[in-house]
Design a binder for these strands. Structure first.
Lengths: 126, 126
DNA sequence: TCTTGACCTGGAGCGCGCTCCAGACCCGAG
DNA sequence: CTCGGGTCTGGAGCGCGCTCCAGGTCAAGA
């Protein structure tokens, strides 16, 4: 018990965070401004220090962005997970989002079917 | 053989086309300007007359838009199907687009997994 | 101490995909 | 012939999601 756990907490510079997450510095700041991540802890000099948890959360945000969710959606996601809500509320919200994603998958499948049809048509005469 | 087939070709007013396709008048004009549809035949007075084929094609465009393809992608799609290209070129192009859609589906699935995980977590204490 | 480069903030700019608008034209009903 | 609604064109405006920039601060190395 010579050290506190916190003393061991490694943090990342903005550049390192950008590197690890694949998100640009500008976008990291933008996400923070929009309330999607953070607020990120600052050093004495005012520089951001991203914790491992921050990095993880940024990964989640990126995952949802890649799935096509908008900034507002993500903000809702943050709100429901951070603020105090009943498990029912959370599950309801999450299930609704999930359904929306399923609709997107369905739209993609429809487009793929059209593509497959065309491919079959042009591929017929080998 | 008292009539030519063309005489029977029913056309649609812009309003009717918008109604049938669920695409706004402005967007129909926008798509035409961008070369995604048409050019649409005009009446003597200069009004657009959408054929049944036009309507069908607009449906395809809508399908791809809903799947998240951009205007430029759609333009490529039009180009490859309309201009003279070897079946191989067409199939290659179509297959590439299909693969892109599959990546999008994968991204959606990843996001859904995260959602499922959270739902399981909050749903645990029934 | 001085230099250098990473980082800070606030705000402007941009590409996309529409959406809206003004001002003019067409045309069928009355 | 007049009226009114549908349509035309060209261009401006908008929301989103970044991206870029200027001007200044901080901090580690020579």
């Amino acid at each position: 018990m010579t050290v506190h756990p916190k003393d061991r907490m490694t943090t990342h510079s903005p550049a390192a965070a950008a590197d690890r997450t694949g998100v640009s510095l500008d976008t990291l700041r933008y996400y923070e401004r929009e309330g999607l991540i953070g607020p990120i802890r600052r050093s004495a000099g005012g520089r951001r220090e991203y914790t491992e948890d921050d990095i993880f959360w940024i990964g989640l945000v990126t995952c949802f962005r890649e799935a096509g969710l908008g900034i507002a959606d993500l903000r809702g996601f943050v709100a429901i997970l951070r603020a105090e809500h009943s498990p029912q509320d959370r599950v309801a919200f999450l299930a609704e989002r999930r359904a929306a994603l399923e609709h997107r998958v369905a739209a993609l499948r429809r487009a793929m079917e059209v593509l497959d049809e065309k491919i079959a048509y042009y591929g017929a005469d080998s």
